[in-house]
């Protein structure tokens, strides 16, 4: 429908005011949530020893953030997450491209992949512990294992999405295999790879924290357990909030990256299923 210019201008205005309304509502909702967290222990609805008022948690968070040890812990978590993610990405992309490009390899590995994929990553915890103890590498093993499947599955579906006609065309022009991979397979698979990155990044964080919690490798997860056993409940919640903020940062960051990398792509692919 063609609207007169004046109307079109005000449509933009309207979109602006709608956005403002959404922002105000979101802020109100968040404040309400914080208020409840503050009020519930103060009114004695829950024992403040289990859930301190929000303000106390924030004070504890501030106190923590002033210590260098806090930043070391945060760094350890982020480092473990990032290293695991990168290893899983490289392995997943390389293997996915290889398996996906050759039909017989794909068929031969299909059943094995389908069998290995649902094996819960936490099954590896005892193995990791006997291999590396409470070292960072224990957690890294978990992170890499869980993230690898996310990436591999996405890359495999990406490679299979290559238009058969485009493939025929490339072959009829006698593109060399490497050229085919670079000019045809990779661009097709890229949106899937980015989905893999996004899903993998949040799965990697879950397993990083899990490893720190259960195995006791260094990081904020371990600190949550230590604070809890030491009875420093407010500090424990402060670290829980840090974990949540890390999660938000990972989600926002990967979404931004995806949009950036796929700017050329007509439609940013809809979320694929993903599971840790």
């Amino acid at each position: 429908m063609t609207l007169p210019l004046a109307q079109r201008g005000s449509t933009r205005l309207r979109a602006g005011s709608a956005r403002r309304r959404v922002a105000i509502r979101g802020l109100t909702g968040t404040l309400l949530f914080v208020l409840i967290l503050e009020a519930v222990p103060r009114l004695g609805l829950v024992n403040p020893a289990y859930l301190p008022p929000f303000s106390e948690i924030m004070v504890a968070l501030g106190a923590q953030a002033a210590t260098p040890a806090f930043w070391t812990l945060l760094g350890q978590t982020v480092f473990g997450w990032f290293t695991g993610l990168i290893i899983a990405l490289v392995a997943g992309i390389a293997l996915g491209m290889f398996i996906g490009s050759l039909k017989w390899v794909r068929e031969a590995t299909h059943s094995t992949i389908e069998f290995l994929r649902p094996i819960p990553s936490v099954a590896l915890i005892p193995l990791a512990v006997i291999l590396f103890g409470t070292d960072m590498r224990s957690t890294l093993l978990l992170v890499v294992y869980a993230t690898f499947w996310q990436v591999l599955i996405q890359v495999l579906s990406g490679v299979q999405d290559v238009d058969p006609i485009a493939r025929e065309t490339a072959r009829s022009y006698r593109f060399r295999p490497l050229t085919q991979l670079r000019s045809l397979v990779w661009p097709t698979a890229l949106p899937y790879v980015m989905t893999g990155v996004r899903l993998g990044a949040s799965v990697a964080l879950i397993l990083e924290i899990t490893g720190e919690l259960v195995i006791g490798s260094p990081g904020i997860g371990k600190q949550i357990v230590l604070s809890q056993t030491a009875g420093q409940v407010a500090t424990m919640y402060a670290f829980v909030i840090v974990a949540g903020m890390l999660g938000v940062a990972v989600n926002l960051g990967t979404r931004l990256l995806e949009r950036r990398v796929l700017r050329w792509h007509t439609s940013i692919r809809r979320d694929q299923e993903g599971s840790p």
Partner: peptide, 14 residues
């Protein structure tokens, strides 16, 4: 976005 495993020590309190 909160990694669900952090729930374990929290819920243990309650």
């Amino acid at each position: 976005a909160m990694p669900p495993p952090v729930l374990v020590p929290v819920i243990m309190l309650f």
